[in-house]
Design a protein around this nucleic acid. Sequence first.
RNA 1: GCUGUUGUAGCGUAGUGGUAGCGCAACGCCUUGGUAAGGCGUAGGUCGUGGGUUCAAUUCCCACCAACAGCACCA
Length: 640
Amino acid sequence: MPDGSVRTTTRGSSGADVAASIGAGLAKAALAVKVNGEMKDLDWPIPHDAKVEIVTRKSEEALDLIRHDTAHLLAQAVQELFPGTQVTIGPNIEDGFFYDFARNEPFTPDDLPKIEAKMRELVARDLPTKRTVWKRDDAVKHFLDLGEQYKAEIIRDLPADEEVRVYYHGDWHDLCRGPHLPSTGKIGLGFKLTKIAGAYWRGDAKNAQLQRIYGTAWRDEKELAAYLQRLEEAEKRDHRKIGKEMDLFHIQEEAVGQVFWHPKGWTLYRTVENYIRRKVERADYREVKTPQLIDRKLWEQSGHWENYRPNMFIAEVDEGGGEHARRVLAVKPMNCPGHVQIFKQGLKSYRDLPLRLAEFGACHRYEPSGALHGIMRVRSFVQDDAHIFCTEDQIVDETRRFVALLTEVYKELGFDSFITKLATRPELRGGTEEQWDHAEKALENACKAIGLPYSVNPGEGTFYAPKLEFVLRDAIGRDWQCGTIQLDYVLPERLDAEYIAEDGTRKRPVMLHRAIVGSLERFIGVLIEHHAGKFPLWLAPTQAVVATIVNDADPYAKKVTAALKLASIRTETDLRNEKINYKVREHSLAKVPYLLVAGRKEAEEGTLSVRRLGSERQETIALDALIKQLVAEATPPDLA
RNA sequence: GCUGUUGUAGCGUAGUGGUAGCGCAACGCCUUGGUAAGGCGUAGGUCGUGGGUUCAAUUCCCACCAACAGCACCA
């Protein structure tokens, strides 16, 4: 037992028997049993000398069990309500589960409450669970006879040594590995169906599209309510909503996937851009700018034309000589080929390396319409891009320097931690196997050399290079992949970059592609959601509003605003004929960090009544002292 | 791109086969009020776009565009 005690039972006793021998309460609460660390059904006979733990609702593992059973419940309800619907798979996911069905008629949002009601009914019926083991061929034939072609396919593909188990909940049954709760009644009512979606069979767009129903499930209705509350909170942070509310940007039909930055949004954008510019300059990068339109020849040479042609914006011009003088240019989807062109100007020596070329490169990619999402996934964006041309020997040190820079930037921008993944060679790729072996090994070595923990993300590298991915965690626990460094042997070769080595021979430089925030557009979306629009002072588009109580204070308020602007504090004046309550409410909702209230008293004394966003307290501060305080707080972290 | 849903004033929304309401914002007047919505009034819409059905379409049908959710994609 978990507490170290030993219990003796008769041969063939099950988890349920053990629970019952401990107490009636536990017997009732038992959901499953953990035998030697492995989850099993309660009725599973326990082997000799086993470590046994009874799993109840309170156990950590309970949620997984409940969710998996709820997925089965969903499938059962759907098949009862919509006969002829085929079941496929229904795994657990974060916070819930889904189940994919094959059915000609689509499910509609109106179906969800009906299905949910049926699920509750099945819980109330408290159908007992029964596990059976089948011969593979029998099972395949059985499911084919039922018209369950997907299930039959799954059984055929099971590993040869795997037992074919079929679980019954009442009469309804499904192929499943288990384990399951002893009856449908144990599932409880802490579940809710959340959305319907199309999803491809086996995740492949070439296959048939199934209909997926998503749900969430918890220990009880209280936990469910808390989860739904969390969803609502996340919705409030949505950068599209806040972007509108705070008048930061908009997107419209005539420029799909591109951002119209409003003055306030652009202020935020420039603040971030200028901050990064200072950081890379201090890290010995040289900033450059490369052309937006480049002849297709260069993209053919780099390999982009072959791999990404459908996703590139193309510009065609007639140079006046008829058909033969047509020139095809691509709007750059990446900056790397441009940077190689700069590198290739003039002969480079090993003494020039490492050469770090940085660019706030505006790139355009024709993203599929379904991929677009606010300012997070757009067709026109700017990367904080840079390419480091270096020698083999410099890889580890350059990686170390980059990770140090990135850590600093994330921290200063308000993110405390990130995780690292090593994305290895994808199926579709350029270069030779030797180059890939070499590049993956080199990145691995760099991680080890600088003591950077990482997990492997197999097959997720780019077509020319393996990469390290840096994933941020935001204020409400969501992950965002932003930074990357890619170790590329392919492009320098394809674009024929070389330098003169110490021994006088010509050699290929290694190229490190790297970005810290990735797309500025996307990163600002992340920043908005991370801070819920309540930015630290240095990032806030409007840092202070001077609001008057009476007209008599107008001249003083104007004077205060002028003084603050002189000190580079982004300040607005609110002289409107409104009550102070109204102004406080409005500027608080607009998430203005500092509200500076000026009435008759303040005007006479040369002070302001200061209210910091998020606080209901006010403090009267002399103008001079206030300016000092605001300037200190508004200083970007790298200049403080 | 695929599946489903949606598209009404700057924003948030109601509604109907007989050409549209509400709230906030805007504008005007009254009010000068001390920390989260003061009062009264005015203006603003070819109901996403294009076809069709109908005496009549914002409403019903079709196509397209866009947004949203998920899938696929993300150099």
